[in-house]
Simulated scan of single mutants.
Amino acid sequence: MSADCQRRASPGIGNSGTLEMIIPPNRSISGTVNPDLRNIPQTEKRWLNDYQMLHYVCPHRASISIIVSQHSNKTKDRVWDFACKTSFRGLINCSWTDYVNNFDEGINFSCPSKSLICGLENLLDDKHKDRRWKFYCCQGDDVCLTRCIWTPYINKYKEYFSWQVPEGSHLVGTVCYNDDQRGQRRWQYRYCAMDPC
C-alpha cells in the first residue's frame, strides 16, 4: 500500500474517501459541506500539517474534492485536511508547479489546460507567519474542462471552513487574497466539469 493510501486509511478518513471531520458548533460554514462530516466526535479530527510544512497528494487518478481548514490565534497559522475523489479513468500526466506566490502575496492560480489539482505543498515561514504554495496538476487523455466557475470567497479571516467541490465537477484553481494587517488569507476556488473532447 502506498504512503498516500496509508494516509487516507488512517483514523479520521473513512473508507469512502470522505474526511470524517466534525463541524464545530456555533461556527458558520461556507461552501458546500458533506452532511456526513457533521457527526464525528471532536477527538477524531485529524490535520495533515499540525502548523508545519504541508505536503499532500491524492491517490492515483484522483483529485482534491474536500478542503477543510482551522485557524489558530496562538500560532497565527492554519491546519489543513483534504479528501479526494476519482477523476480519471485512463492514462494521466502529472507535474508539480514551482511556488506560485511569495510570502505575504496573493495567489491567482489555475492548473494548465485540461488539468486538475491533485495535490499541493506549502512552505511555512515563521518570520512572515505565511506560506508559499505549489500545486500538483494532472491531465487525462481526451478530456476537456467545461462549465468552469469561480466560487465567492468561502471564508472570512481566521474562520474555520469546510468546502466540497460540487458533484460532477473537479478542482482546477484557486485565488487567495492576503491581508498583511491580519496576517491571514481568504480563499476562492475554481471548479469545472470534465467531458470527453
Rank of each mutant, 00 (worst) to 15 (best):
K127R: 14
L91V: 03
T151R: 05
Q139M: 13
I22H: 03
P59C: 15
L171M: 15
K85C: 09
F103A: 13
S10L: 09
Y191F: 11
G168Y: 03
Q139I: 05
P35N: 07
S16N: 12
C138Y: 15
C144I: 12
C137H: 12
R78C: 05
I107T: 06
E167F: 07
S28V: 07
W133N: 07
R131K: 10
V57D: 04
R61H: 13
N73V: 01
Y177L: 07
T97F: 05
P112M: 10
S2D: 15
C111E: 09
M53D: 15
W80I: 04
V172S: 08
Y51N: 08
D179I: 09
N122E: 08
P11Q: 07
S16H: 04
D81P: 01
K134Q: 15
L123Y: 09
L120R: 12
R147L: 02
S16M: 03
C176F: 00
I22D: 10
C197R: 03
T97P: 06
K156C: 00
G106Y: 15
D126K: 08
L123Q: 14
L91A: 04
T151C: 12
V143E: 05
Y56P: 02
K156Q: 01
A9N: 13
N108L: 08
N73K: 02
I154K: 02
R89L: 06
A193Q: 15
D195W: 07
S162H: 10
M53Q: 05
A3N: 09
P11F: 04
G31W: 05
R132L: 14
H71F: 12
T86F: 06
G173M: 02
D98S: 14
W150Y: 12
N155H: 00
Q6G: 02
K76G: 08
G119E: 13
C118P: 00
F109Q: 13
L120S: 09
K158Q: 04
W187Q: 02
R182G: 00
K114N: 05
W80N: 07
R7M: 13
R78S: 04
Y99S: 04
W150K: 10
D36N: 11
R7T: 08
I23W: 01
Y136H: 11
S65V: 01
Y153C: 00
T97Y: 10
N122S: 04
E159D: 11
C111Y: 14
K129D: 04
F135L: 09
